[in-house]
């Protein structure tokens, strides 16, 4: 099934033009993370596409549009700040599910995300420079702090893979199973991430890297969840530095089918409470 969506450097133009379906897009984003040539080409082409919207003929907006739209925004805002039931958020979720197939179904996060709305809405200026990768608990261990930018993502993965190889056994035992690109669960989020799964004699190792994540305030943290048929298991917590963070986790083969990163009020949750910011499918094999 994943073979249907083979992508290559030849596809970068199609990606930028917007002609890929969701699955091709995911596949290409995974390629992009490990291909510097495509990343630089994409940057050039993106500059081009910033100009595309400016080529259209001017058309006069309907009269009164401004007043109607500003009023609608205010309405949506009132509706969303009205206690727990946040209708604009619901709407956003609905539109989301129609435009992007929801990668993940995680009821606890959905029902609790409403309380989280507040923290999304307040500017998250505090804690902007949160520093080190924090790992709590016994199941996971810190590999190291990553603070690279997007250009370095691939290099980081490689480096991590080498570290793993060096730490655990000769590199012959290491095999990169697959790379899963993590995409925003909310359409407007610019975050992106990469989950690399590496297999060796000790089992599967998950390396999660994400960038452009929302800023964290106070005790907030990002938590990584592995899911089997929608049931989440905590795979660790991380903080970010300039919106970039990473995590390393070891697990048994074939246990999970999905991965999600949530934005949490603190690092202590045993179940997801916050909104999902990034998610991806862990296709078996």
């Amino acid at each position: 099934m994943s073979n249907e969506h083979v992508v290559s450097c030849e596809d970068v133009e199609m990606y930028v033009l917007g002609g890929m379906d969701d699955e091709d897009k995911l596949a290409f984003e995974a390629h992009l993370a490990s291909c510097a040539a495509c990343r630089s080409k994409m940057e050039e082409l993106s500059a081009l596409f910033n100009i595309m919207p400016l080529t259209v003929e001017p058309v006069a907006p309907p009269s009164g549009m401004k007043a109607r739209i500003l009023a609608a925004v205010a309405d949506a805002d009132r509706a969303s700040s009205r206690e727990a039931s946040s209708s604009s958020l619901e709407e956003e979720k609905e539109t989301m599910s129609s435009e992007v197939k929801p990668v993940i179904d995680m009821p606890p996060a959905q029902s609790l995300s409403k309380q989280q709305t507040k923290s999304w809405m307040t500017p998250l200026l505090a804690g902007a420079a949160a520093a080190l990768l924090v790992v709590s608990g016994v199941l996971y261990q810190q590999v190291g702090r990553l603070n690279g930018d997007s250009d370095k993502l691939a290099a980081q993965v490689q480096q991590l893979q080498q570290q793993l190889a060096a730490a655990e056994q000769p590199s012959s035992g290491i095999q990169v199973n697959h790379v899963v690109s993590l995409t925003p669960a909310i359409p407007d989020i610019v975050a992106q991430g990469l989950a690399t799964i590496v297999m060796d004699a000790n089992g599967l190792h998950l390396i999660v890297q994400a960038e452009n994540l929302p800023k964290l305030a106070n005790d907030e943290a990002f938590q990584v969840w592995l899911l089997k048929e929608g049931k989440p298991v905590n795979a660790g917590t991380f903080l970010t530095n300039d919106g970039t963070g990473a995590l390393y986790y070891t697990f048994k083969p074939d246990e999970y089918d999905q991965i999600a990163i949530t934005h949490e009020p603190d690092a202590k949750g045993l179940q997801p409470r916050g909104e999902i910011v990034l998610a991806g499918k862990l296709v078996a094999g």
């Binding site: 109607r68 500003l70 604009s88 539109t95 809405m121 500017p123 989020i189 610019v190 300039d242 919106g243």
Partner: peptide
């Protein structure tokens, strides 16, 4: 339809501005 879409767009802007990076490294 265009007005509908533009309205939805500005609701998104209002609700998502806090999540957007505005530093130099971020996109335009």
């Amino acid at each position: 339809a265009s007005e509908e879409v533009v309205q939805e767009l500005f609701i998104r802007v209002w609700n998502s501005a806090g999540r957007l990076r505005t530093d130099e490294a971020a996109g335009k």
